[in-house]
């Protein structure tokens, strides 16, 4: 089915005179038909099926029961946990990434420093999932190198002082490993877009450095920063493998609950699972849409 996608084009090609479009049926859309067919079958269709299922009971009749059931305490708790974790890790990533980008790009460091961070960030932002969890266990787990070194060399017992890698905060620290570089990568062009002349114009008009950042620098960056924050939020919200590898199936963020539901371990009502999926798609969709809107606004300014 997927093998013959190029075929219609071959038949169409020579028979399509450029000038003859008006009087005849326009066949050009056929060229994109394979793509739309694929997208409908394997992307839009499955999602629509879940969305439809979210509004049906097990007999297939229309109902709001599943949506209402999302209000049950354990589901609300997992959405709340997911959202809090995503907010915290997005906030940490956004602030740390902005500070790093500011230091590396505007801080007067040599150019190779930026190059090194950019290359590394490209890798680290894609280094998620199971291996990342392993790396942090080897670092900050109970027998991790840093844990052990701090204990043996400095007498600091991390775990006795309340730190735990396998916790809400520990997890957000792990997320930071891919959130920070992602933020760095997407905020860097925006910092480049801050024109040197803006700072000079502000300065010559009497503004201090602080006033410049307060009145021009940060307001100009604001849509970008907020947009990046939303992107990081969505990025964290959809993360499953990292949590699963680090915490097992017991840490009830929404993707894990859905994962367990699919495996048939938790919920016995598939339609409630559909509603869970719908909730995830809505949250991801809203944050990504806002991101795109904010980005286009920022681009307009930085023309």
């Amino acid at each position: 089915m997927t093998m013959d996608v190029a075929a219609p084009r071959a038949d169409l090609g020579p028979s399509l005179p450029r000038a003859g479009r008006l009087g005849r049926v326009n066949w050009n859309w056929l060229g994109v038909a394979p793509f739309f067919l694929f997208a409908f079958l394997f992307l839009i269709g499955p999602v629509l099926y879940l969305v439809g299922g979210a509004f049906q009971n097990t007999e297939g009749a229309f109902t709001f029961d599943n949506i209402i059931a999302l209000g049950s305490p354990n589901i609300v708790a997992s959405f709340s946990l997911s959202i809090r974790l995503s907010l915290l890790s997005a906030a940490m990533g956004a602030v740390a990434g902005l500070l790093l980008a500011q230091a590396v790009i505007l801080g007067g460091l040599p150019a190779w420093v930026r190059g090194a961070f950019t290359t590394f960030s490209g890798v680290a932002s894609n280094f998620a999932g199971v291996p990342l969890a392993f790396a942090f266990i080897a670092t900050l787990g109970r027998l991790g190198l840093v844990t052990v070194l701090l204990r043996d060399l400095f007498g600091i017992n991390l775990y006795a002082s309340g730190f735990n890698l396998f916790s809400f905060f520990g997890l957000s620290l792990v997320y930071l490993y891919f959130q920070l570089p992602l933020m760095f990568l997407i905020i860097a062009p925006a910092l480049d877009g801050l024109k040197k002349e803006w700072r000079e114009a502000a300065e010559i008009l009497g503004a201090t450095r602080r006033q410049y950042w307060q009145l021009i620098g940060l307001p100009v960056l604001a849509p970008t920063i907020l947009g990046c924050f939303l992107l990081l939020f969505a990025n964290a919200f959809g993360t499953l493998a990292t949590v699963y590898a680090l915490m097992g199936s017991g840490f009830d963020v929404v993707p894990i609950v859905l994962f367990q539901q699919i495996r048939g371990n938790v919920l016995y009502n598939p339609n409630l699972g559909y509603a869970l999926a719908l909730g995830m798609v809505v949250i991801m969709g809203v944050s990504n849409t806002l991101y795109l809107i904010l980005r286009s606004r920022a681009e307009r300014w930085q023309k």
Binding site: K195, E197, W198, A201, G206, L215
Partner: peptide, 14 residues
């Protein structure tokens, strides 16, 4: 207390 005009306008976009 100097006024300056730049080649690339440099108006504050916000």
């Amino acid at each position: 207390r100097i006024g300056m005009v730049f080649q690339a306008y440099a108006l504050f976009p916000n």
